[in-house]
Structure formats: C-alpha cells, structure tokens
C-alpha cells in the first residue's frame, strides 16, 4: 500500500478521535495512532491546510495544540471515522480465528455485527478476503476458560501431568497465555508449588475457573524454555544427516556447523534429558547425539523402549 493511502487512513481517524477526546495529550494521541510525536505534529500541520473550496477561513479544519493538548474546533464533518474497509474487516476477522475455540459464541456474534457495519458494497469483497487468511490453528479448548479467567482475574484449578508422572491437582493464578511454535502455554503462579510456573495446555485436564479473585503482578512475562536457543549452556553435541540438515539449518542458522558429508552439527542445552531424547527421536534416525555419553545412552534406551526392548 502506498504511503498516501496509509496517511489518509490515519488522518481520517485522527480528526474524529480528537473531536471525541478534546484535550487529548500529544503523547496519548501519538500512542493511539502508533506514530512518533514528531510525525504526529507533522500530521497536525498538514491538517491545518485541509479544507473545502472556496477555502474561506471557516472552511478549514481547525485543529491545534495548546499546552501539549490537542483540540479541534472545526472538524469539517469528520466527526466519526470511516467504516471498516474490506481489508480491515478481513484482517480483524482472521486474527479472531486465532482464538476461535476460546471465544465461542462471542466471536460468532462479534463477526456478525462487524459484517453488519460494513458498507453493503464491500461485504462481498470482505467475505472473499476473509477466505484468504486461515489462522484457525489447532488452539485447544482450554483457551476459552483460561482467557476468561485471565480477564476476570480468577484462579483456576486443573490436573497437570508433569513429565513421567500421573496428573496431580494444581491451583494456579493465571497471568498470561502464550503460543510458541504452535504450542500453547499458561504462565502463572502455582499455589501447589508456591512458585511461578509455565504449564503446557495439552497436559491439563479437568480445568475449572474458581470464584477466588487475585491481583496480577504488573509485568508477568515468561519465556518458553527453548533448549535450542540457550547456547550459553549448550553442552550436548548433536549431528544430523544431509537429509535433515536443511531443516536444522533453518532453525539454527549460523549456529549449525556444516560437516564434510553434507550434514550439520549443533550444540544444545543438556539440562532436560527428556526434551533432548524427544527431540532427537523426532528426527527418526536422522539425528545422532555425539556427546556426552550419558545423553547418547538416554536416546538409545528411549529408542529401545519404544520397540519393547
């Protein structure tokens, strides 16, 4: 899209926004439009030149900054933003698909209302464009209650099967949901363990949202532990065949060392034997742990176990 188009969309929103929020600060307005303060002041400058013929003094948009606050005295009928374009509505609807199981009826009704406020002549184009993005990932059912619990700040209970153990009950303050490489995680404070924890949604069972309220900490962000990324503690050397090499190179980039036979070698963290074994096995024989020997043995044991040896 051209810059002119982007700019016009912004300006046609800016004037009504100020009209609705007289005295909005320059900072807040810049944030609402996701542009810098300097760019915003430039846009305001341009707007003072906008008007309609015959361009008498009262025919111009009268928008100004006073004491770092923005006001509009004459909006020249720009008191509401334009309706959503087909592209805007389609992008919004497609993004909502990301949480489809989470949203249930609310998503369906929201999309219906959205379509209703589209100008009739763009509805068909909207439907056509909506079909062009498919983000209906395999988001698990648990996203629904968990999103609600996070928004309503209520504790949740579920059974959690940690690696190698049967499910046990947990009581958790849910802070944040996060999706990483197609896998969903809940980050929160676990009462059972008295510590911050990251839970995989696919290991939860019997989820219930309790009536117990809580106050979330201001900034609760977790990173998914990714052994493939934490190269500082990388201690396990894994070698890949030429068949698997291109896929490994895609993920590791420069960290994948090329070998003479066309394969590659990488170093990964060895603190989770379970992760390492699973990962190596998922290459179905195209990966080999070179060292340490304890990790080689773990992979061998796991492979033998899966054929009943």
């Amino acid at each position: 899209m051209s810059n002119v188009h982007e700019r016009l969309r912004r300006l046609l929103f800016l004037v009504p926004y100020v009209s609705k929020h007289p005295g909005v600060t320059v900072e807040a307005l810049a944030r609402a439009l996701n542009i810098s303060r300097e760019d915003l002041l430039e846009e305001l400058d341009l707007l003072t030149c906008v008007g309609r013929p015959p361009f008498n003094p009262d025919d111009y948009i009268d928008i100004y900054v006073d004491n770092d606050r923005v006001y509009v005295d004459l909006d020249q009928r720009l008191f509401a933003p334009p309706r959503l374009t087909a592209g805007e509505a389609a992008a919004l609807a497609a993004s909502a698909e990301l949480l489809r199981p989470a949203s249930g009826d609310a998503l369906q009704s929201a999309l219906q209302k959205l379509e209703h406020v589209l100008p009739p002549q763009v509805r068909e184009r909207y439907r056509e464009m909506y079909r062009k993005i498919d983000a209906s990932t395999e988001a698990p059912q648990a996203l629904g209650p968990l999103t609600r619990a996070i928004l309503e700040r209520r504790e949740v209970m579920f059974g959690y099967a940690s690696p190698g153990r049967a499910a046990e009950p947990r009581r958790v303050r849910p802070y944040e949901l996060l999706s990483h490489r197609g896998q969903w995680y809940l980050q929160g404070f676990c009462h059972t363990r008295q510590d911050a924890r990251l839970f995989r949604l696919d290991r939860m069972e019997d989820l219930t949202v309790t009536e117990t309220p809580f106050l979330p900490p201001p900034d609760a962000r977790a990173d998914v532990p990714n052994p493939a990324r934490s190269s500082s503690e990388a201690s396990v050397r894994v070698r890949f065949s030429p068949v698997a090499a291109p896929y490994v190179k895609e993920r590791f980039g420069q960290d994948a060392r090329p070998l003479a036979d066309g394969g590659v070698e990488v170093l990964v963290a060895g603190d989770s034997e379970r992760w390492l074994t699973q990962w190596v096995l998922s290459f179905g024989g195209e990966a080999e742990v070179m060292e340490p020997v304890s990790a080689r043995a773990a992979v061998a044991r796991a492979a033998r176990a899966s054929i009943g040896l």
Binding site: A91, S95, A106
Partner: peptide
C-alpha cells in the same frame, strides 16, 4: 475477544494485513 486476538496478532509482529488490522482495532 476481537481485541485479545487482534492485539496478540499485531504484537506477534508476524500477521498478514498488519496495517489493516491496526486500523480495524482502532
């Protein structure tokens, strides 16, 4: 729902129609 999904998609940095989506959310 629309906000949660839309802002998560925007924040991911990797979603087609980012500009369209940002305007729609506004």
């Amino acid at each position: 729902v629309l906000y949660a999904a839309g802002s998560a998609a925007l924040a991911s940095g990797v979603f087609p129609g980012r500009d369209d989506l940002a305007h729609a959310l506004r």
